[in-house]
Simulated scan of single mutants.
Amino acid sequence: MATCDRDELREVSAAVLAVTAHLSVREVLQTIVSAARRLLDARYAALGIPDGRGSFREFLADGLTDAQWRAIGPIPRQHGLLGAMLSDPAPVRSADIRTHPRFEGWPAAHPEMIDFLGMPIVDGDEILGELFLANKRSGRFEAEDEELLKLLAAHAAIAIVNARLYERSRELSIVEERQRIARELHDAVTQKLFSLRLTAEAAAALVERDPARAAAELDTVRRLAADATAELKSIVVGLRPVDLAGDGLAAALARQAELLDRVHAAKVTFASDTVPRLPAPREEAAYRVAQEALHNALRHGAPSRVSIELRRAGPGVVLTVTDDGSGFETAAKAAGQRLGLASMRERARSAGARLHVASRPGEGTTVTLEVPGG
Results as ranks from 00 to 15, higher is better:
residue 318 V to Q: 09
residue 123 D to K: 04
residue 341 L to K: 02
residue 162 N to R: 09
residue 204 A to P: 08
residue 174 I to W: 08
residue 316 G to W: 05
residue 216 A to L: 12
residue 339 L to A: 15
residue 25 V to I: 09
residue 186 H to E: 05
residue 223 R to A: 13
residue 295 H to Q: 10
residue 217 E to I: 09
residue 306 V to F: 00
residue 15 A to W: 00
residue 315 P to S: 14
residue 67 A to C: 06
residue 339 L to T: 13
residue 60 L to S: 06
residue 39 L to H: 01
residue 183 R to C: 07
residue 21 A to V: 00
residue 139 G to M: 03
residue 368 T to F: 00
residue 181 I to T: 12
residue 280 A to D: 15
residue 200 A to P: 03
residue 30 Q to R: 04
residue 283 E to G: 03
residue 153 A to Y: 06
residue 166 Y to T: 14
residue 342 A to I: 15
residue 22 H to K: 11
residue 20 T to V: 12
residue 83 G to P: 05
residue 121 I to Q: 08
residue 267 K to T: 15
residue 133 L to M: 05
residue 268 V to A: 03
residue 82 L to E: 03
residue 35 A to V: 00
residue 290 A to W: 09
residue 318 V to L: 04
residue 356 H to K: 10
residue 240 R to V: 14
residue 154 A to I: 05
residue 43 R to S: 11
residue 11 E to F: 01
residue 46 A to G: 02
residue 135 N to R: 04
residue 318 V to W: 08
residue 258 E to V: 08
residue 126 E to Q: 14
residue 368 T to C: 10
residue 156 A to M: 08
residue 202 A to Q: 13
residue 127 I to T: 07
residue 248 G to Q: 03
residue 189 V to N: 12
residue 295 H to F: 12
residue 24 S to T: 12
residue 344 M to Y: 07
residue 94 S to I: 07
residue 191 Q to K: 10
residue 170 R to A: 12
residue 262 R to P: 02
residue 193 L to C: 03
residue 69 W to D: 09
residue 149 L to S: 03
residue 214 A to T: 10
residue 150 K to R: 15
residue 218 L to Q: 10
residue 236 V to H: 11
residue 157 A to E: 04
residue 84 A to M: 09
residue 215 A to M: 13
residue 74 P to Q: 01
residue 338 R to T: 13
residue 305 R to N: 12
residue 320 T to S: 15
residue 68 Q to G: 01
residue 243 D to C: 00
residue 270 F to W: 01
residue 88 D to L: 03
residue 155 H to T: 02
residue 93 R to A: 04
residue 172 L to K: 11
residue 233 K to G: 11
residue 307 S to T: 15
residue 193 L to T: 02
residue 229 T to H: 13
residue 122 V to T: 15
residue 113 M to C: 14
residue 146 E to C: 02
residue 87 S to G: 14
residue 79 H to Q: 14
residue 29 L to H: 04
residue 55 S to Q: 10
residue 272 S to L: 06
residue 106 W to Q: 06
residue 228 A to Q: 02
residue 81 L to F: 04
residue 152 L to P: 00
residue 281 P to D: 08
residue 332 A to G: 12
residue 67 A to W: 07
residue 216 A to Q: 14
residue 66 D to G: 07
residue 149 L to C: 05
residue 217 E to P: 07
residue 224 L to W: 01
residue 120 P to E: 01
residue 21 A to K: 00
residue 156 A to D: 01
residue 317 V to Y: 02
residue 241 P to A: 02
residue 321 V to C: 10
residue 280 A to P: 11
residue 122 V to N: 09
residue 366 T to G: 02
residue 189 V to E: 13
residue 328 F to Q: 08
residue 169 S to A: 09
residue 49 I to Y: 08
residue 103 F to G: 02
residue 193 L to M: 14
residue 335 A to Q: 06
residue 129 G to N: 06
residue 255 R to P: 04
residue 94 S to H: 10
residue 238 G to D: 05
residue 373 G to T: 07
residue 287 Y to N: 05
residue 361 P to D: 04
residue 128 L to C: 05
residue 68 Q to S: 04
residue 332 A to M: 07
residue 160 I to R: 06
residue 243 D to R: 11
residue 69 W to C: 13
residue 142 E to N: 08
